[in-house]
Design a binder for these strands. Structure first.
Lengths: 364, 364
DNA sequence: TTCAATTTGTTCGTATGTATC
DNA sequence: GGATACATACGAACAAATTGA
């Protein structure tokens, strides 16, 4: 009686148990097919079917003419090279090469391998890419959230990551509703610092361009608002322009809209160097002198800030250091799930030529 | 006759081709096992083996009592979660972000995901990283060879890739002894072009600094030699300095060695912008004016060429275009194993300030 | 609901080819 | 070269699930 399971599964389980109990260690040779057939009173074909099952699970490896060997190490850590999944929005441009370089350096040094994927800041890609990583099996995840400023449809996916006990660290941003650690710059401070820099330079009517689909945008905006209020300056909703990832070209392609929004402003805080770069280009093309007529400050201190027609004063993003910290923290988290992996970098301003001090003001 | 492949693989390929040509669409039912056995004059067991192969690749799904169905969508976007492994020497710097950006763009667009890893040009890392990728299961590989200028100890690994039928494309270089396709710039032409540029500028005694552990170094050197001989100029072995990955800092830290080697030369061809960048720095620090006393030309046209104290005239590397081509070719190779995936890009010179024409010469 | 045909799943037996040691 | 081990291939039978009459 008994049974239920087919014979080949019975045998597969018997072998697996031998491996997991370490009775058969990594690299050891299994009994031959004919041998096991005799042992269990089953045909060689049935034995082969059992072996196939475990081959697919990468627990066994057959070598013609030699034998079948255990290719799985029940001991965690040793033979199997742990893999960390890394998901960012973009890759080969802007601040991302530096971030990835930081992550990669640490992971390689510690003997981990890395699986990289990209979302282009689209939620459907995020879901696809995370599923694929879970399928392949990763031992930890470093993720730059997609559209963290909007309700996240992949919440279930994130919950299933947590449930499976796979450590996760967000970089650059995080979903405010998910209680998961993040490594980022202090975006609130960054927005505040940028705004205060303009205020110290004597500017009073200061506009802003912010991204609303990333949570960094919300924080940088909050910092901007906070600095304005702290300085006793009024806020004018008309001077704040919001955009989303998909609006990018539409913004820079509509100079009138921009001019209208910045009317009366002597300076503007930009969400990042990308939008600032385009803003400068559009304004100059429309005969606006920078920084003479409008001062521009932005955030991230990327290569864009350097190669802009008017080099941009920009709040520094930690880039490679952030990547390194994220990698270190995910590794610590693997060893100690109670570790608090959140870290925020304090920003500083890198001065270039896009901000003009207003002479009419003699600030302290 | 013909054959080579076992019958079950022949059948598997026949079915796969039907799916990829969309003759059999997603969700459609395959012929029954007995039917195909009759069609091809093979036994049902052999048919089952073919189906198992495609089941493992997630292209088919069998349901007992019902039939076998296509579970793979050749149409981009939907079901296919194929993964391409990408292995380069470095990541976040030099020409690599652009190459990776090119690869990633194509793979993402076609609905593939990507696993990235890095070797730091060390053979032990190469073997580790390739093993890990094979373990995780990738459907294609794009690899920048490690130390392609030296005998490769991972040859068995490469043979096992070929044996498993996993398509592979090398980028940037290749192992001359392995008959596998590569996508790269034409390094011989690049070396020749750089040298001819100096010759046309009137230089006669031209030194060279080349890397010997990468095969690119051999080819660029051959191009240099070829140009010199073609122009009827003698070659002086003393004026050629060879280095390896690990020598890098040692070279730039030893100004005397360099000066001695370049004695009598009015110009030098550098293996790439990295070494040229350091060379310029060292020479200037030692009171040598560039390009007044020595002209420098290099290869790769990277950001280093731009930010060098003396902006470098450099032979352009296709970077992103190379990445795109490599990605396209690996995808074609997956569908058609007979495709010739080798491609070489013809180089051009990008002029900057590091080469001085010799007035004494009135070349044509 | 039942039944019969179809389809895949499991198991056995046998034979030959080919790689390894 | 010979023994051993896995790889491929054929044939046959029955079990279990699905489908449609």
């Amino acid at each position: 009686m008994s049974s239920e399971l087919p014979k080949y599964m019975e045998l597969a389980n018997w072998i697996r148990q031998k491996i997991e109990s370490k009775e058969l260690g990594y690299g050891e040779k299994l009994y031959s097919e004919n041998e096991m057939g005799r042992m269990f009173g089953i045909s060689r074909q049935t034995v082969r079917q059992a072996i196939r099952v475990l081959e697919q699970k990468k627990m066994l490896e057959s070598r013609q003419g030699s034998g079948t060997y255990v290719s799985y190490d029940a001991e965690p850590g040793k033979a199997s090279f742990l893999t960390i999944g890394v998901i960012t929005t973009y890759v080969g441009s802007y601040i991302f090469p530096n971030i990835i370089k930081g992550i990669e350096g640490v992971l390689t040094e510690k003997g981990y391998s890395m699986q990289l994927a990209f979302t282009h800041n689209k939620v459907e890609n995020e879901s696809r890419v995370i599923s694929s990583m879970l399928e392949k099996g990763v031992d930890g995840l470093i993720i730059e959230p997609t559209k963290s400023g909007l309700p996240n449809p992949n919440r279930e996916l994130y919950e299933s990551i947590a449930q499976r006990g796979i450590p996760l660290v967000f970089i650059n941003s995080y979903y405010p509703l998910l209680p998961l650690p993040h490594v980022s710059m202090n975006d609130f401070e960054a927005g505040m610092l940028a705004t205060e820099y303009l205020i110290r330079a004597g500017h009073k009517r200061i506009g802003g361009i912010f991204k609303f689909d990333d949570y960094q945008g919300h924080l940088r905006y909050s910092g901007y608002i906070n600095a304005m209020l702290k300085a006793g300056l009024g806020i004018c909703d008309e001077n704040v322009l919001w955009y989303a990832t998909e609006d990018f070209s539409y913004i820079s392609g509509d100079p009138n809209r921009i001019s209208k929004r910045l009317e009366g402003c002597s300076a503007v805080v930009c969400y990042n160097d990308m939008i600032a770069f385009d803003l400068v280009h559009v304004l100059k093309n429309n005969g606006v002198a920078i920084p003479e007529q409008i001062s521009v400050i932005s955030i991230d201190n990327s290569d864009r800030a350097d190669i802009c027609e008017v080099p941009l004063t920009s709040v520094d993003h930690p880039k490679e250091a952030l990547g390194k910290t994220a990698a270190h923290n995910i590794l610590t988290l693997i060893q100690n799930p109670d570790f608090d992996a959140t870290a925020e970098f304090d920003p500083t301003v890198v001065e270039r030529l896009s901000v003009k001090p207003l002479e009419s003001i003699f600030a302290d």
